[in-house]
Amino acid sequence: MRYIKAADVLPEELLREVQRYADGAYLYIPRISENRLSWGDRTRSKEETAQRNRDIYARFQAGEGPRELAGAYFLTEKTVRRIILAQRKARGGGDGSGE
């Protein structure tokens, strides 16, 4: 997000009205809901995280334990277990019991 000068984009009358409420303050103006981007839409973060999670699950299926995976990916064991459970559910593999 970058800052822009209100005087450069707002009509003078509207600027004066805003100044009545927030003179000199920094304002955050939220995006119109139709213009909002989901997390990761601007970057590849969403895709990269999904791939990481698939990799974790594949390594888990190959025999690596949550503790080893947590160390390899700099995550907590609890996070690794959540990823494994989510991947298992996504593949129709049940509730995750029996890890």
Rank of each mutant, 00 (worst) to 15 (best):
I29D: 04
Q51H: 11
G40M: 07
A6L: 10
D95T: 15
D8I: 01
Q19C: 10
A25Q: 10
R67F: 01
G96C: 06
I84L: 07
E12D: 09
E68L: 01
F60N: 02
G92Q: 04
E47F: 04
G94I: 02
V80K: 01
I29T: 09
A22I: 06
D95E: 13
A25P: 00
E34M: 04
L69F: 03
S97V: 11
E68P: 00
A58I: 13
V18Q: 02
D95Q: 08
L27I: 13
I29P: 11
S38N: 13
D8Y: 02
P30C: 04
A50S: 14
Q19L: 11
K89N: 06
A90V: 08
D55L: 06
G24Q: 09
T43C: 01
V18R: 01
K89R: 15
Y3R: 05
R82W: 02
E68G: 02
V9Q: 00
Y3Q: 01
S38Y: 11
R82K: 12
E13N: 07
Y21H: 12
Y73P: 05
G24N: 08
A72K: 12
P66V: 00
G93Y: 09
L85V: 14
K5I: 04
A50G: 07
L27N: 08
G71W: 00
S38T: 15
T79F: 03
S97W: 08
E13I: 01
I83D: 04
S97H: 10
S38P: 13
